[in-house]
């Protein structure tokens, strides 16, 4: 291998690693706050990328029907809960927020000239019909069992992954999708050619990570999430709603997932089931960080990206095997250094 090949591999690795890092941060966040191991994270990547592909081709994102259906389902569930509490006065707001809003958005977007829309607006439209799925799924699938064991939540999580994967095939078909780059072309750095899209990915990932950090440090909602992550019961006693915290971090996870999909769609063809493997690689990064530390998770994710690009050069057939085997030594090390035994009495 010569220096220029090595540089290309590094570029590849860092690009993918930046995406994995974003995903791993979202996974750590969701796990810390809700104890849910968020397997469907990858589906948000695919949904984001393929919705973007639909919008840029001038079609409405097919996920909008899911957003509307789930919106109506959430409205129903919330209304039943409100009626049981005897709070019928809340009904109009519940219906407006959960069911009417998605329908209005759908109607509004129908009249937009999607194909000729400015690129950032196209992104906004794609996100508009993917991100709400996050809180909706939390409300319907996870909130009713929020107090259950990690194991049960994990099985629910895998079931949600199955549902979204099956629906993904229905919505987007088996053909992959690709979108135009944020900006075409690239430049030469020494002996290697660097695409602008690569810079976009790494830059936006860095901005998003910094944004998340600011959000957690300085905003009241971010602080509420951190409090919930540290001590759920304590946070609830301080008036922080666990339901709100759950929905909030699922919204963030959906946003991060869908946006990651939009970032990579110009450089790789995304299929309805591509997201799963991407999400799992984010997981490998998160596991390196013990599902607890943000900086370690991000570093682990970059490591995964580099390992992946180098192994695809040396042993491309075994690329996935090598990447997923990485967690073995990590787990082994953690296992030998952890003496903590947890006792959940459920």
């Amino acid at each position: 291998m010569n220096a220029s090949v090595a540089l290309i591999l590094v570029q590849d690795g860092v690009t993918n690693g930046a995406i994995y890092a974003l995903l791993s941060l979202a996974l750590v966040l969701v796990f810390a706050v809700t104890r849910v191991i968020f397997i469907p994270q990858g589906e948000f990547v695919a949904y984001g990328a393929l919705s973007m592909a639909a919008v840029s081709a001038g079609f409405l994102p097919p996920t909008m029907w899911l957003v509307v259906t789930l919106g109506i389902a959430v409205a129903l569930v919330e209304s039943v809960a409100a009626l049981r509490e005897g709070a019928a006065a809340r009904l109009p707001m519940i219906i407006l927020k959960n069911a009417a809003l998605p329908i209005l958005a759908l109607v509004a977007v129908r009249y937009l000239p999607l194909k000729t829309l400015a690129y950032p607006l196209q992104i906004a439209v794609a996100l508009l019909f993917v991100v709400p799925l996050g809180p909706q799924i939390y409300r319907l699938a996870f909130q009713p069992v929020a107090e259950a064991t990690v194991l049960l939540l994990l099985i629910v999580s895998v079931a949600v992954h199955f549902v979204l994967l099956g629906l993904g095939l229905y919505f987007f078909g088996a053909e992959g999708g690709r979108t135009p780059a944020f900006s075409d072309g690239g430049f030469n750095l020494g002996s290697s050619y660097i695409q602008f899209q690569t810079l976009w990915i790494v830059g936006i990932a860095a901005v998003l990570i910094a944004g998340l950090a600011l959000f957690f440090e300085h905003s009241i909602y971010g602080k509420a999430l951190r409090a919930t992550a540290i001590n759920r019961t304590g946070a609830r006693l301080m008036g922080i709603s666990a339901d709100l915290a759950g929905k909030l971090c699922f919204t963030l996870a959906a946003l991060v997932g869908a946006f990651s999909g939009i970032l990579i769609a110009p450089i790789t063809t995304v299929y309805y089931d591509t997201g799963f493997l991407i999400g799992l690689k984010g997981f490998v990064g998160a596991i390196v960080g013990g599902l607890a530390s943000y900086p370690l998770a991000a570093a682990g994710a970059i490591l995964v990206g580099l390992l992946e690009s180098y192994s695809s050069f040396y042993a491309s057939a075994y690329k996935e095997v090598i990447v997923f085997t990485l967690i073995i030594p990590v787990l082994l090390w953690r296992s030998l250094t952890t003496h903590h035994v947890d006792d959940e009495e459920h």
Binding site: L151, L277, F324
Partner: peptide, 29 residues
């Protein structure tokens, strides 16, 4: 089991996901 079972309960399922994927690709390649 040696690697994952000393850790909290969710590391076994996560470990088996990785193991499941690795073996599948190994069979295929």
């Amino acid at each position: 089991g040696f690697i994952t079972l000393r850790l909290s309960g969710h590391f076994l399922p996560l470990g088996t996901i990785a193991w499941g994927i690795s073996l599948y690709f190994l069979f295929g390649n």
